[in-house]
Simulated scan of single mutants.
Amino acid sequence: MDTLTLGDVTVTRVREYYGPVDLTPAAFVPDSAKELWQAHHSWLVPDFLDPETDIVRSAIQTWVLRSEGRTILVDTGVGNHKDRPHAPVWHHLDTDFLGNLARAGVRPEDVDLVINTHLHVDHVGWNTYLDGRTWTPTFPNATYLMTKADFDYWNPANENKTLLGPGSQKVFEDSVAPVHAAGLTHLWEDTYQIDRNLRLHLAPGHTPGSSVLKLASGSDRALFVGDLLHSPVQILDPDANSCFCEHPAEARATRRTLLGSAVDDNALVFPAHLGGHGAAEVVRQGTGFAIKSWAPFTPYTEHA
């Protein structure tokens, strides 16, 4: 498995899915200019864009962090056997994610913390697994860290009108509520200090309770930004939101702030869904940013 050491923390990339997401660039990142994709076509293909179909390629993956003796998962993907009729790519998915996690040296009972950067369908799925007819916490010894803002926003009891609409159907019920009912959640606000190396911060916009995980260990810095970035074109044009951002103006402002912070701190940026090398260092360029260098993770192949 691909592992990177940052100060006293190791970061391992664990794959659930990599491939097409049935959206064109114009649909996936509607604020982005067609010319931007064309200008950078040479390196967006094949890791981030299928040249034959013009469909975006995306990764569903979990970052496994080991820090101060604890095993920490950042986001838990889509999950198996989940009923997702309004998201066909994820409907009744059946992957070897737990096998991939085991190959990274992690058994479900080994996990100490689960961080859900936000509560979208593709970030909470492996919070639970289907045990007979019951959705059961996958990581029975873990504390699941969720923002209170997202917990309240996506809780169907609160009847919020969301951008995803039917796309969020059943997600809270099968992937969030069971771990909360089991007493395994911690709902945090504003910031949450995990240990000397890791701290969570609210980063609203994509969802009201979206968060980032900041790593500072020795001289190394990193930002795990969840869906602040779905595509590397959003580094080049940070005003370009994905089609899934609940609060567009706030998402743009948060993205610019965090990318600026990454430059100032020389922090490696870990989005949730990038294929290719998965993470990047960024620099300022014009009114936006550019990729300075990629992380040394091995690019995925679609059928591996």
Rank of each mutant, 00 (worst) to 15 (best):
A26F: 06
A27H: 07
P30V: 03
D31I: 00
D31Q: 07
S32Y: 00
S32C: 08
A33C: 05
K34H: 13
K34C: 00
K34I: 11
L36Q: 09
Q38L: 14
H40G: 08
H40A: 08
H41D: 13
S42A: 15
W43C: 04
P46D: 14
L49I: 02
L49S: 03
L49W: 07
D50H: 04
D50M: 08
E52V: 15
I55S: 08
I55A: 04
I60N: 09
I60P: 09
Q61P: 05
T62S: 13
T62I: 11
R66L: 09
S67P: 07
S67R: 02
S67I: 08
E68W: 01
E68H: 13
R70S: 12
D75R: 04
T76Q: 11
G77P: 00
V78T: 14
G79H: 02
G79Y: 07
G79M: 06
K82S: 10
D83I: 13
P85W: 02
P88Q: 10
W90G: 05
T95V: 11
T95H: 07
D96L: 11
L101K: 01
A102G: 14
P108L: 07
E109F: 00
E109C: 00
D110G: 04
V111P: 03
D112Y: 00
D112G: 13
N116K: 04
H118I: 11
H118L: 15
L119S: 05
L119T: 12
V121G: 08
D122A: 15
D122H: 12
V124D: 06
V124P: 11
W126F: 15
N127K: 02
